[in-house]
């Protein structure tokens, strides 16, 4: 019945600027490398034969982890910078309109939509409110936690006097009690981010199919296209 009203689509909107799109895909790649290498740092592969001097398996795995970690951290810093200088959409996942009643109404509507209670999704130029909430809580804070604890653990190896130690290890380790706890929580939050990724990938594809706007293609082209020409529900 809604479908009958659709005659032509509204003009597309340029939502994701190139730096945001670049960050998104670089970040996705670095998280993938981090999770796989991290998993095998905690649970190493079976021993390799031969002389120690001829092998460097865990060394390479750790190198991959650290390199991806730097990319992950620098990308995140860059992303914060772009949140400041980029368009409105670039800021969205960093600042929650916590005191906006209608935004919370939007969160509630999305929950109903995903619970198959609401018959129709709302229409958004940017992220829908539930997506913003999830990305903020899981991705943004998960990333902050992983960067801070990651550098704290890395700083243990670079040692006292290194900037990683001084900026991170020196206060993070005592805060948790001991290094072992930081390792444990670093791994636990890896799983937290993996949970986010599962949901994120699924929802992006589902929305692409079932919502009233484009999703996956937008993160490639930057343009949000719409499937109907009614008013959008967000201020963006």
């Amino acid at each position: 019945m809604t479908g009958k009203a659709v005659l032509k689509s509204e003009p597309a909107v340029y939502v994701y600027e190139a730096p945001v799109r670049l960050w998104h895909w670089v970040n996705a790649l670095s998280i993938t490398v981090l999770c796989i290498s991290g998993y095998f740092i905690g649970k190493p592969l079976p021993s390799v034969p031969g002389e120690a001097s001829e092998n460097f398996l865990l060394g390479y795995i750790r190198f991959a982890h650290f390199a991806a970690g730097y990319i992950f951290a620098i990308g995140f810093l860059f992303r914060i910078y772009w949140a400041l200088v980029g368009n409105d959409h670039a800021r969205q996942i960093f600042v929650l309109p916590l005191f906006n009643r209608s935004w919370w109404g939007g969160v509630w509507h999305e929950i109903k939509w995903y619970s198959f209670v609401a018959r129709e999704p709302r229409k958004y130029t940017g992220h829908n409110p539930l997506a913003v909430l999830t990305m903020h809580l899981m991705l943004v804070w998960g990333t902050v936690f992983m960067i801070v604890t990651g550098f704290a653990l890395y700083g243990e190896g670079t040692g006292m006097g290194s900037w990683q130690y001084d900026w991170f290890s020196s206060w993070v380790i005592p805060l948790f009690g001991q290094s072992q706890d930081v390792h444990t929580w670093h791994r636990l939050v890896m799983w937290y981010i993996i949970c986010f990724i599962i949901v994120h990938v699924y929802v992006a594809i589902r929305e692409d199919i079932m919502s009233r706007q484009s999703l996956v293609s937008s993160m490639i082209s930057g343009w949000r296209t719409f499937k109907d020409n009614r008013e959008v529900d967000d201020g963006h």
Binding site: S47, V48, E51, N55, F56
Partner: peptide
């Protein structure tokens, strides 16, 4: 060195 090489007591 055995850690970096990936050689462990199992």
């Amino acid at each position: 060195p055995h850690f970096d090489a990936g050689q462990f007591v199992e």
